[in-house]
């Protein structure tokens, strides 16, 4: 099958890649670009483990095709914080023990970042509804919600 060349910007770096039209963004990230931070849980839009920011909006990368990235700007978990300077969300997840197995964590952080970028100080209700598309089998969610609220406390008005 012919592969298409796609030009995009991923985590601030101009990125050209080749992919088949049937490959999802998640497959492109993990299998073609070695960016394995985004996880596959359900592969059908229900779990949010594959969440990425596409032109600033949170999407399920398993429900977007790689070819749709032409000209687009993508942020994955690899583009949020770094080992020397964690994003406030990452710091809060550690401090609040908001993860156990960790497979859902990149998706939660990406999705929560989209929320805090748009609304730096959401209330608990808002956080829970915003994160309704992210599933966690381990934590029972309370610690995740607490971590997001803690990070929100530390957010300047706009990051």
């Amino acid at each position: 099958m012919a592969r298409t060349q796609v030009q995009s910007r991923i985590n601030g770096v101009d990125t050209d890649f080749l992919c088949e039209p049937r490959q999802s963004v998640l497959e492109v990230l993990r299998d073609e670009l070695g960016l394995t931070g985004s996880k596959e849980g359900c592969n059908n839009g229900n779990c949010g483990a594959c969440s990425v920011l596409l032109n600033g909006r949170v999407v399920n990368s398993c429900c977007v095709l790689g070819v749709e990235l032409e000209g687009a700007e993508l942020t994955t978990i690899e583009g949020i914080g770094n080992p020397d300077k964690l994003h406030p969300l990452q710091q809060a997840f550690l401090e609040e023990a908001a993860l156990q197995c960790g497979i859902c964590t990149p998706g939660f952080i990406v999705s929560a970042k989209a929320l805090l970028d748009a609304e730096p100080h959401p209330d608990e209700h808002r956080v829970r509804f915003w994160l309704a598309g992210n599933l966690c089998r381990c934590t029972g969610y309370d610690k995740i919600v607490r971590a997001v609220l803690k990070a929100a406390d530390q957010m300047p008005e706009k990051v």
Binding site: G45, R57, V58, V59, C63, S111, W130, L131, G133
Partner: peptide
Amino acid sequence: IGGTAIQSR
């Protein structure tokens, strides 16, 4: 319709 990520698309 879906959650936040679905509604983006």
